[in-house]
Amino acid sequence: MEKDILQTEKDIFNVLKTIYDPEIPVNIYDLGLIYDVEVDDYDNVDIKMTLTAPNCPVADNILRDVRDKVAEIEGVNKVTVDLTFDPPWDKSMMSEQAKLELGFL
């Protein structure tokens, strides 16, 4: 059975919530690093994301992790992960849960 786009997006968000910056105990989704996820009619996925800082010792690892785990989702065709620093990440982008976990609330 063909998966619909909403289900694919849901699966993508669930996968993103399993990926961590090794130095921060909050997943990249709740950390607010994911700016945009688009799934087109051909199940091609475009993810626009950022990092907490542009000096990026683990940037490649995180981006590779995002690409590889999203590509493994059933029904996904192509995955493009685009890194941007516009706008730059700041603490306000974190979810309430993340702020709580990191002691900002």
């Binding site: 542009p54 690409r67 995955v79």
Partner: peptide
């Protein structure tokens, strides 16, 4: 550290 490429996967 500014990337001039994107990470990509396809089948």
């Amino acid at each position: 550290c500014k990337k001039e490429y994107k990470f990509f996967a396809f089948y």
